[in-house]
Amino acid sequence: MPAVALVRHRAARVAALIIVALTLSAGLAPAGPAVAAPSARQNAVTDDPEGGTPALRADLEAASKGYLDAKRALAESVQRQQQLTAQLKTTRVEHAEHTELVEQIADQAYRTGPLRTASVLLDNTSPADFLDRAAALEAVVANENQTLRELQEIQEQITQDTRAVEAEIIEQRKQEALMAKRKQQAEKALTVANEQARAAAAPTNTSTTQNSTSAAPAPRNPDGSWPTETCSVNDPTPADGCITPRTLHALNEAKAAGFTRYVSCFRSGSSGEHPKGRACDFAAQPDGFGGDATGGDRTYGNNLAAFLVDNADQLAVLYVIWYRQIWLPSSGWQSYSGAAGDPSSDHTNHVHLSVY
Results as ranks from 00 to 15, higher is better:
8 R>Q: 15
18 I>E: 07
20 V>A: 03
21 A>T: 04
30 P>D: 02
32 G>K: 01
36 A>G: 01
40 A>V: 00
43 N>D: 05
49 P>Q: 03
53 T>D: 00
54 P>N: 04
58 A>C: 01
58 A>W: 01
59 D>E: 00
66 G>M: 08
74 L>A: 10
74 L>N: 11
81 Q>V: 10
84 L>P: 07
98 H>S: 12
117 T>D: 07
118 A>H: 05
119 S>W: 13
120 V>D: 10
125 T>L: 12
126 S>N: 10
126 S>A: 11
128 A>S: 13
129 D>Q: 15
132 D>E: 13
132 D>H: 14
155 Q>K: 02
157 Q>W: 05
158 I>C: 00
169 I>H: 03
173 R>K: 10
178 L>C: 05
189 A>L: 00
193 A>S: 10
194 N>S: 07
198 R>E: 11
207 S>I: 00
218 A>D: 14
219 P>V: 15
225 S>C: 13
227 P>M: 06
230 T>Q: 08
238 P>M: 01
244 T>F: 07
248 L>I: 09
248 L>Q: 07
251 L>P: 05
256 A>F: 11
266 F>I: 02
267 R>H: 11
275 P>H: 09
277 G>M: 02
282 F>I: 11
285 Q>W: 13
287 D>C: 08
293 A>E: 04
302 N>E: 08
317 V>M: 01
321 I>T: 09
332 G>R: 04
333 W>C: 01
340 A>V: 09
342 D>I: 10
343 P>A: 09
343 P>C: 10
350 H>E: 12
351 V>H: 11
352 H>N: 08
352 H>V: 10
352 H>A: 12
353 L>G: 07
